[in-house]
Amino acid sequence: MHNGHMKVCRVALLGALAVSLTQFSSAMAAVDGPTATVAVKALNFLQPKPAKPTPVTIVTDPGQAAAGEAIKSALGADVTAKVVDGAGDLSGAVAIVVVGGADVAAKASTGQLVIGDMACMTAGKCALAVERQASGAAKYHVNTAALAKAGVSFDKNFQMLVTAH
């Protein structure tokens, strides 16, 4: 009986934890198609402004190419995307979208904007992350140190609208 009660408590606690995690999902979730679609809109505000369609490379964890392909298919006509894993070639891309845990910071060239999830941005491995809200509004989070290190700069009006970290 006592064990059963503990089990119920554990389940309840796990449930509560799951609910809590769900509430933070928009901030913590890996980049998906809709989020990447919003994120690449930031490319319109790069200085200097790149030509369209803008080349973007999607980097996935090994064996997760399907997730990358899903994102690729979600992106609009303003970008041309390819999917690679962490060992893939990043040259030629104006932006790199990181899906999963790959760390491309060291591998990315100067001038390449690395986009990832909030954890990646907070850790400084990515320069940009997007938080989508239920209302349809979006919040762009920028790790200013990572952005400066990458040699990337945004139009000043856009820069004043982002949330800097």
């Binding site: 402004k49 790149p50 509004a137």
Partner: peptide, 28 residues
């Protein structure tokens, strides 16, 4: 080739506010 295209800066650099692009990006 794509990289070479991307390095060509084109069009307006948006010193003035691009209301349409910003509304599209921020969703408001």
């Amino acid at each position: 080739l794509l990289g070479a295209t991307a390095l060509l800066a084109v069009g307006a650099q948006a010193q003035t506010i691009d209301y349409s692009a910003l509304q599209d990006a921020f969703g408001q």
